[in-house]
Design a protein around this nucleic acid. Sequence first.
DNA 1: GGAAAATGAGTGATTGCTCGCTCTTTAATG
DNA 2: CATTAAAGAGCGAGCAATCACTCATTTTCC
Lengths: 188, 188
Amino acid sequence: MARPLSEDKKDAILASAIELVAAMGTGAPTAKIARRAGVAEGTLFKYFPDKDALLAATFLDLEGELARALVAGVPAGLAPKERIRHIWNRLIDWSAANPTRLKALRQLKVSDRIGPESRRCGEAFFADFKALLDEALAGHAERLSIDFIGAVLTALAEITLDFIARDPGRHDYHRAIGFDTFWRAIGR
Amino acid sequence: MARPLSEDKKDAILASAIELVAAMGTGAPTAKIARRAGVAEGTLFKYFPDKDALLAATFLDLEGELARALVAGVPAGLAPKERIRHIWNRLIDWSAANPTRLKALRQLKVSDRIGPESRRCGEAFFADFKALLDEALAGHAERLSIDFIGAVLTALAEITLDFIARDPGRHDYHRAIGFDTFWRAIGR
DNA sequence: GGAAAATGAGTGATTGCTCGCTCTTTAATG
DNA sequence: CATTAAAGAGCGAGCAATCACTCATTTTCC
């Protein structure tokens, strides 16, 4: 083994992919991604066998980061509703604080270049998150499936983020309205 | 003057675009769209100045059809909640009955090739729908903006349709759950 | 010294769109 | 009504641009 692949270069390529996918969608050319990462185009294909693999890695990188941000430091002593609100706030705050990453993730989510395997893999990152939800909602919403609740939470978060993007001065207000709406939606 | 453009051909091109955009996304080649419509590729550009114009026309065609399906035949005598449920059912049933059109519309909605002007134009189709919503919800949800409520309705409809697509045998069940969730979300 | 990383010009495939041409429709003319 | 000229719909091969990916060559590290 004469010369090892560099973890730094791999990270640089991923970071570049995030920015360019956010700006141009999954059609962002590999040449530009490589350029911005400071490597030659051929080098990119030493680290990822093809573009789809690069997109999948980018997708999983972002999903992993988001999933970790969600469940980190959830206070144990709080009432279920407040624990869920804590997660909700994490989701909104991370997304609002990382608009580029959010944009890239949205693009990848709706892209047909992310295969079902990658999606399942990404889903798995959110197992902890779903478990927390499930536990906290034991009495509040037992009639709705956890998948449905997760989908509702995600959708309402997207709406909330759109409103925050249009009216950033009232971040906290929109965040609270969004949570209350979610809580009502899954209640009774 | 000399030879009129044919409305039939234009419709054929639009119909072809709907099917191919549903199947391949906005990347569907103009050559294929023309082929399937039974015209030469050059002819397509006699009817639409470029591909973006074709996509915009396709988008507005679908939005218009959906908007019309929503507000048609809303019974006047019903209670507000039941009137909204009627609209909800129209939305779910039209989408479930027209999976190809729905798929194409989804692709176009998230595409960056539909400009803000087309989007505003499409939005205008739903003015009647929003007015109906606004009127019916006068007492039920006055604290939330009508735009927020519309977004919540759309998002919950998307989720409901995903569940129906996975489990078509319980169409009515998922439809009812979806509506109840929406009603709770915007309530109090 | 040698193996593997790094390079970037090159390649073949694909795409949106053009352009010179043919054929159909319409309107004008006697 | 018959003839003809003008307009422009219809055509599809071809063009220029773009893309993902390759490969002969150079550089770098063990």
